[in-house]
Simulated scan of single mutants.
Amino acid sequence: MIGFGKMKWIGVSMALILFLPLLAGCALSAKQDAAAAVKPTPEQLQKVKLLNETAETMYQKVQQGDIPGSRAVLQQISDQVTQIRFEGITSVEGLNALTDTITEAKRVFQAVQFNPDAGKISAAKVRLATDSLTHASQPLWLQYYKQLQDDVNVIEQTAKASDKTSLQHASAHFEQHYSIIHPSLLISRPAEDVERMDSLVAFVKSQSMSQGMPFRNVLNAVPPMRQMLDKLFMKREATAYLPYPEPQNPILWTLAFGSVILAALGFAGWRLSKKNDGIVTVRRNEDGYI
């Protein structure tokens, strides 16, 4: 038998079990909102703009075949990055992607045997990455959408035709084109979305290189690849990807919800106390279980 006082404490405990996670969720939401509310200073924006202009100069020099000039400008880019604070501009993943891209470009341009094609790809990566810092709503890398969609179409066609050699070539082309915008994606989009796309790209590549007959597996991967591309390039309705909107005052909603729980449990305990003089009898069923 359980007394009314103990019943009340059980009710309070149950309410706290439901109530405290909601408070924790609100605290986490508030913390995330505070982080998202960080705004870059005019000085930061000016430095990022200068970085983007320097990257454009480097890209043009590479296109003109001025490799010594490209190396000099690339060093300027490397120096400028160390003087910029990126809070409110991009995430930690985005900053790491930017610095890794610059480091990779320096290795390409400082190689004993310079590869012109690799140099152009590295210059394009740097250029797109810095542009995504300054043009968050309409970055240059968005122009790659059609190219990547065409690559996925070729992957699908070669898989349907069971042409493994062509499938390998199609997968390699897609991976190369995707790698050019990969740093920009990490700068502009949530890391978890980029990781999902990375996994799909790696899966298709591994399947195309496998010893068996991977065509069905590749065809199964095509729809989610298209879906992730649409999401990364924001080509579908935003409502298809946005989370359920939070209430304007989550703390008030939480307090109200918790009050309802407490009131309901308290009322139930009061009814039981009136019915059995404050004693709740716990009986066993026919099988002997409580």
Rank of each mutant, 00 (worst) to 15 (best):
V204L: 12
A191L: 00
A202F: 02
S166L: 07
S210G: 10
G212W: 04
K231R: 15
L232Y: 14
S188W: 05
L242K: 05
L252S: 02
H169P: 02
Q227A: 15
P224L: 12
M225T: 14
L167W: 07
Q176P: 09
E175Y: 15
H177Y: 09
S208T: 00
H182E: 12
F174Y: 11
I187G: 05
A170P: 00
A221W: 12
S208W: 05
S199A: 13
F233E: 06
V222F: 10
L185Q: 12
S188V: 02
K205V: 03
Q207H: 04
L232F: 14
H182R: 14
S210R: 00
L252R: 08
H177Q: 06
L167N: 00
Y178S: 02
A172S: 14
I181N: 04
V194S: 01
L185A: 06
A202Y: 03
I181S: 01
P243G: 06
D193T: 13
W253Y: 13
K235Q: 13
F233D: 08
R216Y: 13
A202W: 02
K231E: 09
M228Y: 11
V194P: 12
Q176T: 15
L242S: 06
D230H: 13
A202Q: 14
A191I: 01
F174I: 03
S166H: 12
H173P: 04
K231L: 14
I187N: 06
A172R: 12
E246K: 08
E237P: 00
I251V: 07
H182M: 03
M209N: 08
H177F: 14
L229E: 11
W253M: 14
S179E: 09
L232G: 10
S199T: 01
L229S: 02
V222P: 07
L200N: 06
H173W: 10
L167C: 03
